[in-house]
């Protein structure tokens, strides 16, 4: 009996070894372990074995079966592995073939720059607000310390609808709306379209965008203005960018300044980009004029703070090295798809 089992086992292992594929293995399994298989036949013959020997023989039969099954499984795994390897080898592709283009659309460079600016200020606790584009003269000029016949009114070449209503020339009008609401302290930025009667050329457009900013509280100082805008410049243009504040004049801020950043292309050495100066003018800013606070119902003896205005197109042109402002409003997809 023992020999018989040994014989079956050896024969089975030999056949498995010689098998050429998964199907042959199945045939072997059926021939030995199937209902009519050799080993099954031996089990059927157990009734002829003496009862005292039965457990021992049974154990031997099981051991044989397990050994064969293990070998079959091993061989099957090997065949599958080989098969997969062959398939993977066959499926090799040329990875340098051109990509299939995703047809997602593109965001306007102005919007990309604006979102960056918004995120920086939202991170500093600023609220983003909006104001009307068609505006009363009062909000655009008078409440900003620019009374009738003030020379600054001429400088800004305003489009008028009638003598009281105009197209806003600056988002600074949003400062006034914000202050009039009377909710203090204020930390806001107000992006939006503004209009000035400039003929269209590479650096001018009669319609462009500004982002106004304002912070009012009991003790917001000019040094806070410097710190806030320096932080903005670093986040916008890079950690190693330096800022310079120069005295300037705006009717609605006092003291006033213009902020330059060190050229982020040449790092201040001077290049085509910064016209050899090493610095690029970015924005105008200052401490809100006490008279402006007063006109909007805020007591300048109690509250003070700063305001600033950035030209959005200017930032977009600089940051993305766009050399002609007209491209921003032509909307050629060969331009738009680069952003």
């Amino acid at each position: 009996m023992k020999d018989k089992l040994q014989e079956i086992k050896e024969k089975a292992l030999e056949q498995i070894k010689a098998a050429e594929g998964a199907e042959t293995l199945n045939d072997i399994r059926v021939a030995i372990l199937g209902k009519k298989g050799e080993l099954t036949g031996i089990l059927k013959a157990m009734k002829d074995v003496s009862p005292e020997d039965r457990p021992k023989v049974g154990q031997m039969v099981n051991e044989t079966r397990e050994a064969i099954e293990a070998k079959l499984a091993e061989a099957k795994a090997a065949f599958e592995k080989a098969e997969m390897e062959a398939r993977l080898k066959h499926e090799k592709i040329d990875v340098t073939l051109p990509a299939k283009k995703l047809k997602a659309g593109h965001r306007h460079p102005n919007t990309i720059a604006l979102e960056e600016i918004e995120n920086i200020f939202i991170g500093m606790g600023y609220e983003v607000v909006e104001g009307p584009e068609v505006e009363y003269d009062y909000y655009n000029f008078e409440a900003l310390n620019i009374p009738a016949n003030h020379p600054a009114k001429d400088e800004q070449d305003t489009f008028y609808i009638n003598k009281d209503i105009l197209l806003r020339t600056q988002t600074s009008s949003c400062q006034v709306h914000m202050m009039e609401q009377g909710k203090l302290p204020i930390r806001m930025i107000a992006p939006g379209r503004v209009f000035r009667s400039d003929e269209v050329d590479a650096t001018h457009s009669p319609s462009f965008h500004q982002v106004e900013g304002m912070a009012i509280d009991k003790d917001i100082t000019f040094s806070d203005l410097k710190g806030t805008l320096a932080e903005f410049a670093k986040e916008m243009f890079g950690e190693d960018v330096k800022v310079k504040f120069r005295p300037h004049h705006f009717p609605f801020t006092e003291p006033s300044a213009e902020m330059d950043v060190s050229c982020f292309k040449c790092h201040g050495k001077g290049c085509r980009f910064c016209k050899g100066e090493g610095w690029i003018e970015i924005l105008g800013c200052g401490q809100v004029h006490p008279h402006v606070l007063e006109m909007s119902g805020i007591d300048p003896n109690e509250y003070q703070g700063f305001a600033f205005g950035v030209g959005l197109e200017r930032i977009a042109l600089l940051k993305y090295e766009i050399d002609d402002m007209r491209l921003l409003y032509e909307n050629d997809t060969r331009f738009l798809s680069q952003f």
Binding site: E118, F121, I122, G123, M124, G125, Y126, E127, V128, V129, E130, P185, I186, R187, A215, D217, K218, D219, I220, T221, F222, S223, D224, K226, G227, T228, A230, E231, K244, F245, R246, P247, E254, P255, S256, A257, Q287
Partner: peptide, 28 residues
């Protein structure tokens, strides 16, 4: 104040961030 700042030097004025009450930022 601006006259003082001009001749003290805008570049010498310290660089700080606003203190005090924080405001909830965000978009509409």
């Amino acid at each position: 104040a601006e006259e003082v700042a001009r001749f003290y030097g805008y570049d010498k004025i310290p660089t700080t961030l606003p203190k005090g009450s924080s405001v909830k930022g965000g978009i509409s």
